[in-house]
Design a protein around this nucleic acid. Structure first.
Lengths: 107, 107
DNA sequence: ACTAATAGTTCGTAATTACCGAACTATTGA
DNA sequence: TCAATAGTTCGGTAATTACGAACTATTAGT
């Protein structure tokens, strides 16, 4: 796997995060990961968007990693993704909560 | 001027707003309008990005209007822009504040 | 060890989007 | 009426995105 550039906490950029969350598919992924506070692989995380090509999905997860929203841990064949809640909260207090802790319709 | 589709409050879409704010130029525009609580025309609002073509700027303002972030009022030759603070707060409580009320560097 | 299955990434191409300069409309003021 | 200011629209090109196909890597079955 190519070395991903996951930004350090102090290098998080607000517009990168907002841009990453500005796509409905990525928004749904992050919301799902955030609400369920669990760590899911790429396929499970995107259940509401089942008909998306996996190459496209791979790209979405790359954007999320590079924006700093999620981190990945390799476990066997699968990538275990989780939202970098503490990192983002420490740099942008209350941002995640105000964006994700609601039942906005996202279509 | 072509009829713009500025969404009603109840039709605001979170991903459209995040996507609009995910661009550094548009972020700076909205942040400026928000902080100064004043109504500025397009040229004034984008002082930190002076070397952008005005056609590009026009496009950025169109995105902001269509996302519902700003409203426009024609006054003489100029467009007076302002952030739709009340509308957005009523639909997405605390969103604007947590995104804009900080001194994040935005490159 | 060999094979198949699962999970992701990478690559090439087509489609979509973004940026810029130039030309245009509209309003104001001399 | 003419010039200046403020924005929009258009056309071409550059950059980005989505997809399927081919690839790598790990696990499980035999």
């Amino acid at each position: 796997m190519r070395q991903e550039k996951q930004p350090r906490t102090e290098d998080l950029v607000i517009t990168d995060i907002l841009s990453a969350l500005g796509d409905p598919v990525r928004f749904a992924i992050v919301k799902h990961l955030y609400e369920n506070k669990c760590q899911l692989n790429c396929t499970q995380a995107v259940t509401p968007f089942a008909n998306i090509a996996k190459s496209t999905l791979s790209g979405h997860f790359r954007v999320l990693r590079e924006s700093g929203l999620i981190s990945v841990r390799k476990q066997g064949v699968e990538n275990i993704n989780s939202v970098r809640v503490d990192d983002i909260n420490s740099r942008f207090p209350n941002l995640l909560n105000s964006i994700l802790s609601n039942d906005y319709s996202i279509t």
